[in-house]
Simulated scan of single mutants.
Amino acid sequence: MSDQKACRMPDILRTESGEERRVGVEIELSGLSYETLVQLSEKLLSGQARQASRYVAELDTDLGKFTIELDSDPIKDLDLQDERLPQSMRELGGQAMEFIDAAAEKIVPLEIVSPPLPFTSLERVEALCDELRKAGALGSREALYYAFGLQLNPELPDLGADTLVRYLQAFAILYDWLKSRHQIDISRKFTSYIEPWSSTYTDMLIAGDYAPDIKQLMRDYLKYNPTRNKALDLLPLFAHLDKAVLAEFVEDERIKSRPTLHYRLPDCDIDNPRWHFSTVWNDWVVLEQLANNAEDLAELREMFRQSRKLSIRNLTLSWLDTCEQWLRNRDYV
């Protein structure tokens, strides 16, 4: 039996302080009842669940605290004794709640939110997703109104401006390739959750002489992208770096400060037997490797800049094809 791991590891596994880098994982799905998902997660993660509130369970494991929840605040917080509700609904009590529960579990995603996990522990997430598929979990492809994602919150090697610029440049260059790899379901294409960055901002970012400090980097980004709804959302990181600068452009109580990127692009296609958590993670590792190879990043960045100019060549050859071939030639994929 092969002991080869499904999840690839990037070359840089530790932060500048010497700690192993970590990543938070958010998995949206349906097809299982809330209670079933809690019980399965408890078993598969060898944890102990406790009910934190309606439709929110906290699961203590050796990896830290996972949260399993129905991803809809109005339903999680619903109180049938609330005087603002119709009298008829309050009188029905438990029967009304059973009806609401049944409807909610059909159209509102259930979500598993991990604690920050060491990169080297991600085989556990791979196994969790595979077992949930076997149990009947459904992903985005199951219905038009499903727009389920698998989100990653990877910790950076350090928070220096030059490191951030490299990661942002790598993402801008690879955006079309990543989008094609994830085969974004039509239900998510119709949403505004995973928009690309402003084209004007991208041109600024990939300029050969772009070397801002942290405050300027934040202001450049926020001038053109003042929203959470981006395929790579930087607002949690910016809240961690400098809340005052963020507040110049965005006021949103949903933004949670954390020293990570927030990668929102991938679907959760968990019921597809050809899809695995590792397929998403390993594509992210391609970005990691490119961001931390200065020579390759400079070469591909220049090719990307040229691809954005009007020319006969660019009318006949797509950037996606060019990028894919370059990555293969350099053994990134």
Rank of each mutant, 00 (worst) to 15 (best):
M1T: 14
A6I: 01
P10G: 08
R21L: 15
R22A: 06
G24D: 04
G24K: 03
E26K: 07
L32K: 10
Y34H: 11
Y34G: 07
T36R: 15
V38N: 01
L40E: 02
L40P: 01
S41I: 01
S41F: 04
E42H: 08
Q48C: 14
A49L: 10
A49E: 09
A52V: 11
A52C: 09
V56E: 10
L59Q: 05
I68W: 05
I68P: 00
E69L: 14
E69W: 03
E69H: 07
L70K: 05
P74C: 11
D79Q: 11
D82L: 06
D82V: 03
E83Y: 01
L85I: 02
Q87V: 13
S88E: 11
M89E: 02
R90E: 09
L92F: 05
G93C: 04
G94F: 08
Q95F: 14
M97E: 03
E98G: 12
A104D: 01
A104N: 03
I107F: 11
I112S: 04
P116M: 07
F119L: 15
S121V: 10
L122C: 09
L122N: 01
R124G: 05
E126D: 13
E126A: 00
C129R: 00
D130F: 06
R133P: 07
A137N: 06
E142S: 14
A143H: 15
L144N: 15
Y145F: 15
A147F: 09
F148D: 08
Q151P: 07
Q151K: 09
L152D: 02
L156K: 03
G160S: 14
A161V: 05
A161F: 08
A161G: 06
D162V: 08
D162Y: 11
T163R: 10
R166F: 03
R166N: 10
A170H: 05
I173P: 05
D176M: 07
D176K: 14
H182E: 07
I184V: 15
S187C: 13
S187T: 11
K189H: 12
K189E: 15
S192Q: 14
Y193T: 05
E195H: 10
W197G: 01
T200Y: 08
T202C: 08
L205E: 00
L205M: 02
A211L: 09
A211Y: 09
P212Y: 04
P212A: 06
D213P: 08
I214W: 06
L217Q: 08
M218N: 00
M218D: 00
L222Y: 00
L222F: 01
L222G: 04
K223Q: 15
Y224W: 15
Y224E: 12
R228Y: 00
N229R: 11
K230C: 01
L235R: 05
L235H: 03
D242P: 10
A244S: 15
L246D: 02
A247M: 12
V250S: 11
E251V: 13
D252Q: 12
R264Y: 04
L265H: 01
C268P: 04
C268E: 04
D271A: 15
N272K: 03
N272D: 15
W275E: 05
W275R: 01
V286S: 09
L287W: 00
E288D: 15
E288N: 11
N292A: 14
E295C: 12
A298D: 13
R301S: 14
S307A: 14
S307K: 06
S307E: 06
N314V: 01
N314R: 02
L315G: 08
W319I: 06
L320R: 12
N329A: 13
R330C: 07
R330P: 00
D331L: 09
D331A: 14
V333C: 10
V333K: 13
